[in-house]
Design a protein around this nucleic acid. Structure first.
Length: 438
RNA sequence: CGGGGCGUGGCGCAGUCUGGUUAGCGCGCGUGUUUUGGGUACACGAGGCCGCCGGUUCGAAUCCGGCCGCCCCGACCA
């Protein structure tokens, strides 16, 4: 994108409503704008990040064998009456009426709907197991939205649903999703810790939440360094192998990990002090196994091998995609602005033309822009160098290619790495190699 | 939902208590000069039914009533 023609409204001052650092930076960097309490528009740069995160989430879901589909945001109240949750869910659910006064709702989650879809079409044990997912906007009418997209009312969520013939199968699905989650978070550049959790309104008896570490996180977390020693993306665990998943699951659930509410100082004290890790965390995912909680009331059965009717065992698995944008910023920023991990940055590099109008600067900048294309944000504005530096730092591009009249005359540019501030003067080709190779 | 607060050019704010010139300031925006590697400086300029509706008054951003929106603390939550 050419910055001079972009909807990328950076702010020098922080809007009064923003309290936490991710909210402030998202507004200042022109990523989002609030349109109503807890509801945000995603501007081009913010939407790129959202989309990059969704792409990684999608890739890992696909790799785990989950099928992507897309369910509607508006649901009929009837289905929720069948499961008994229509009244149970409370004021958090946004209820609406159409012109015929039929009762509808903006979905906060999709267990009922996916179960309905399965009961319409899946009738034999031979069609199971299956896992399906979608990445879709949800609405929960929070009493008090706050912290920007961290706790908005409308949010983008990846939710997956597993259907198995029996408990053993459901456990394998559960572990499979857990591994997919650890891989996803690692690819996003985050350290995530799975922690045993309460099941809340989704229900069920087995649940983990995924906490990512960020200095400004909402809760205190304690965990064993064992979690840091594992490379989840390595070939160490075959996500298709139940045995590998069992081994993986043991590694996830044996070492100590707890949020402050569940912290057990006695157990904690027994851990080798060198292996104790403590920090702040933000919940970015939650997985549940809940058996037949929905298949029974919605009367979803398949025929088993012996001709008997079986209520499939289900689980559901959520990742807060829009929340992750804020969570990553909480985990990765400094006084000047955001520091995007390479994998999700809105632009891989910013091209800072310090002197538009200077023939050498323009030529170098245009060449770089042509080579990097959509991966680059070309700052071609007639602005002071300082303004461009400040905006580039704020936006947090992993790389900045700084083109000034001094170096440009001899075909050299300065390459700056946002994460550590390292700079070097290199040729255009060397800069490209470094950026594209990273 | 309980408690508190705020709504004044795009953003951040002053003015409101103690009604009364043309409603200010900083940033941003436009033009010009300047500057030319870390939010430069100067000049000129554009931009506001002071959240909305009603009331009191000779006169309302300012007082009164109602409504709407937003934020903060608490309880609740991906």
């Amino acid at each position: 994108m050419r910055l001079s023609r972009s909807l990328l409204p950076t702010l020098k001052e922080t809007p009064a409503e923003a309290q936490i650092v991710s909210h402030r930076l998202m507004l200042r960097a022109g990523l989002v704008r609030q349109t109503a309490s807890g509801i945000y528009a995603w501007l081009p740069a913010g939407y790129r990040v959202l989309d990059n995160i969704a792409r990684i989430v999608r890739a890992e879901q696909d790799a785990a064998g989950a099928q992507e589909l897309l369910m509607p945001t508006i649901q009929s109240a009837d289905l929720w009456r069948e499961s008994g949750r229509y009244d149970g869910y409370g004021k958090e659910m946004l209820r609406i009426q159409d012109r015929h006064e039929r009762e509808l709702l903006y979905g906060p989650t999709n267990e009922e709907m996916i179960t309905d879809l399965f009961r319409q079409s899946v009738h034999s044990y031979r069609a199971l197991p299956q896992i399906v997912y979608h990445i879709q906007w949800k609405f929960r009418d929070e009493v008090r939205p706050r912290f920007g997209v961290m706790r908005g009312r409308e949010f983008l969520m990846k939710d997956a649903y597993s259907f198995d013939i029996d408990h053993e199968g459901a456990v394998v699905s559960y572990r499979r999703m857990m591994l997919a989650y650890m891989r996803t978070f690692q690819r996003l550049g985050l350290r995530a810790i799975p922690m045993a959790a309460d099941t809340g309104p989704i229900g069920g008896d087995l649940s983990h939440e995924f906490i990512i570490l960020a200095p400004t996180g909402e809760s205190q977390v304690f965990y064993d360094a064992a979690f840091e020693d594992i490379d989840y993306t390595s070939g160490d665990f075959d996500i298709r192998s139940p045995d590998d998943l069992a081994r993986f699951y043991a590694q996830m659930t044996t070492p100590y990990a707890a949020t402050d509410e569940k912290h057990d100082p006695e157990r904690w004290a027994k851990i080798d002090p060198a292996r104790r890790r403590e920090g702040r965390g933000i919940e970015v995912g939650h997985i549940f196994y809940f058996g037949t909680k929905y298949s029974r009331p919605l009367n979803f059965t398949v025929t088993g091998a012996g001709g008997q009717k079986i209520h499939p065992e289900m689980g559901s698995y959520g990742i807060g995609v829009s929340r992750l944008v804020a969570a990553v910023i909480e985990a990765s920023h400094d006084a000047a602005g955001i520091i995007w991990p390479d994998a999700i940055a809105p632009f891989r590099a910013a091209i800072l033309n310090l002197k538009p109008g200077d023939a050498a600067c323009d030529a170098l900048s245009e060449t770089l822009y042509a080579r990097l294309g959509n991966d680059a944000l070309y700052d071609d504005r007639e602005e002071r160098a300082g303004v461009k530096f400040a905006d580039a730092d704020l936006l947090g591009h992993p790389w900045q290619i700084i083109i000034g009249p001094r170096g440009a005359a001899s075909g050299r540019v300065e390459l700056k790495r946002r994460a550590d501030g390292a700079r070097e003067e290199v040729s255009l080709e060397a800069a490209l190699a470094k950026i594209l190779g990273a």
